[in-house]
């Protein structure tokens, strides 16, 4: 939630390491060729360790992220106040004022096509989102701790007015 810049930093670090490592492998000792069998012997040994590392990272990353899943069945939302949100080309119908520090559940649906219900915090970061679909209600559990004006933008292409489809609410 609001972690866009964190992701960007992680991405820069990963990309820099990957590019540096690949350039190193390609350029190191390029002027002094070795027979393929020599490179393969070392390469296959490294690959076993590398495979282990990649698998461990994948499984650990998965396990670490599971508690942060945003879904209603993953987040305690018993007794929360339900807020109805209805999207339609090209506006959101919802209350203008919401309480701070109270567990809420947005019940989000659409009257026409698919929309995205994207909530931007007062500092401008993307804070939470869920799809607004016709025929379906998506339940988004959330709790606001920062007071101020939140902007809502459509985050699923919904037609010619998509870029102008926004709304907002105040958290007090």
């Amino acid at each position: 939630m609001g972690d866009g810049l964190l992701v960007l930093r992680i991405f820069f670090v990963v990309a820099a390491i990957a590019i540096a490592a690949m350039l190193f492998v390609a350029l190191y000792g390029a002027k002094k060729p070795l027979p393929q069998s020599v490179v393969n012997d070392a390469g296959y040994r490294i690959r076993k360790l590398w495979l282990g590392l990649v698998l461990v990272v994948a499984v650990v990353a998965f396990a670490l992220t599971v508690p942060f899943f945003p879904y209603p069945w993953a987040q305690a939302s018993v007794g929360a106040r339900h807020i109805e949100v209805t999207a339609a080309q090209y506006a959101f119908v919802m209350p203008a004022v919401l309480p701070a520090d109270v567990p809420l559940v947005f019940d989000v649906t659409s009257q026409d096509v698919n929309h995205g219900f994207g909530i931007y915090a007062p500092d401008g970061t993307l804070f939470a989102q869920v799809q607004a679909m016709p025929d379906y209600i998506n339940h988004l559990p959330i709790e606001f701790h920062v007071k101020g004006h939140y902007v809502v933008r459509c985050l699923e292409f919904c037609g010619i007015g998509h870029a102008y489809m926004h709304g907002g609410f105040d958290v007090r």
Binding site: T109, S110, Y136
Partner: peptide, 10 residues
Amino acid sequence: GFGVSFGNGG
């Protein structure tokens, strides 16, 4: 979903 929509009450 072809010719039928299930939905969840929306």
